[in-house]
Simulated scan of single mutants.
Amino acid sequence: MGSTDPPTSLTQVALDKADWPLFTKAQLLEYFERIDLPQSHLESIVLQDGLQAGTVEYGLPLLQAIVRHHSSRVTFDNLVLHYSAHKTVTLDPVALFERIVRQKRGGRCMEQNSFLAAVLRSIGYEVRSGGGRVSRAMSPYPEVRQHQSTTYDGWNHMLNLVRIGSEWHVVDVGMGSMGPNMVIPLRDGFETTSIAPRLIRLQLRPIAESYASAPAAGGEGRPGPPLLWCYDCCYRPSESSPADNVWTPVYCFTEAEFLPQDYEMMSWFTSTNPRSFFTRYVTCTKMLLDESEEHVVGNLTLFVDTIRKQVGATRSVEAECKTEEARVKALADVFGIVLTEDEVQGLPDDRKLQT
């Protein structure tokens, strides 16, 4: 039973920059080793002079490499909500450093992007954290996808915005296989290939769920529905007629800055509510790089009992875990996550795979 005594302090951003949770150079080197950052990037001038972090010439290439290597080495997973005795999530950067770097574990969007924000600020990047709503077209529940695919969840996603030159850029390593997993400029109409042939885009537009009506033609004084940044994917782009491309909404977000206390509430709901995807299903994803390690080309994903691989547009079933022992072994062999005996024993009986 938790204490009912009133708290002596509440979560907040430290008002003095000197008190921000930043990592030392030695800790950053540990992190770079964890994500196998190539030597060429370890020699970046940015790591000697943090003022260069905001430059297109030096800061952007290093940021792109960090995002690329982070997404391929740090798994997007919810294992702490299943394989643990406590089933609780921490967003404390110091605790996340221990878990992600030294214990070689992963996490969900708020764990991963909270940690990465602290890393980037420690290097010298200007980072602003924001919040998003995940599209119900991404729902694991077929009925929801069928009937509510044009609507969005509540605020349940975290991403970061990083200033490079005169532009902010979206940096998000917390959306698994459906995330950008690359640095993209916060630019209305921006479109690019992510994991070929998949296209991604950003549009500043209203979403369908708004009580505000569109302004009348030629009318003044009615601003219409609020605009949100919408991140969409096109899985099978048309080579002959781009206008025929079918775009699927992934999430929408706002430029408003979210605070640690916002994520504290968001994380608590998504990690405790029995209707949450994260509390119901075991999942783990890591992205795959090409041989040059310059491009993300696919992913390996465990969902409940099946490991699927996707490279480009090609999908395959890599393994089916028939027993709990097989799933634990797969987490170690495929994803590099070695669970302790206490963690394995912490999985509730109703979530264990049975023969």
Rank of each mutant, 00 (worst) to 15 (best):
V338D: 10
D49Q: 13
L259C: 08
Q146C: 07
G224Y: 01
G336R: 08
S276L: 11
V144W: 03
E264H: 10
E239P: 06
T270A: 01
A212F: 09
L288A: 11
Q203K: 12
R121F: 05
E264V: 05
R102A: 09
E209F: 09
V134N: 03
N156R: 11
L228N: 06
E57N: 09
S149W: 10
P93V: 09
V328M: 02
V317F: 00
S44D: 09
E257F: 01
F269N: 09
T301I: 02
E98H: 10
K87V: 03
A117Q: 09
P274Y: 12
D342E: 14
I100L: 15
P7Q: 11
V338A: 12
S129A: 15
L347F: 00
Y251V: 11
A319T: 08
E143D: 14
D36K: 15
S40Y: 01
A332V: 09
D19C: 06
L289G: 04
T75N: 01
C321S: 02
P21A: 05
G336L: 09
E341S: 11
E318H: 13
D262C: 07
V311W: 07
T192R: 12
P242Q: 05
Q12M: 13
P274D: 15
A95S: 09
M182A: 12
R308N: 11
F278G: 01
L204W: 01
R34Y: 04
S40P: 00
V296L: 06
Q345R: 14
R121T: 08
F269D: 08
K87R: 15
Q261M: 13
H70D: 03
R136L: 15
D92W: 01
K322S: 12
H82S: 03
C234F: 09
P185W: 02
E257K: 04
A196N: 05
E325P: 01
I45F: 09
L91I: 14
L42Q: 07
S241R: 14
G132M: 03
T279I: 03
Q146P: 02
E318P: 07
P61M: 13
A212E: 12
Q39K: 07
Q146A: 15
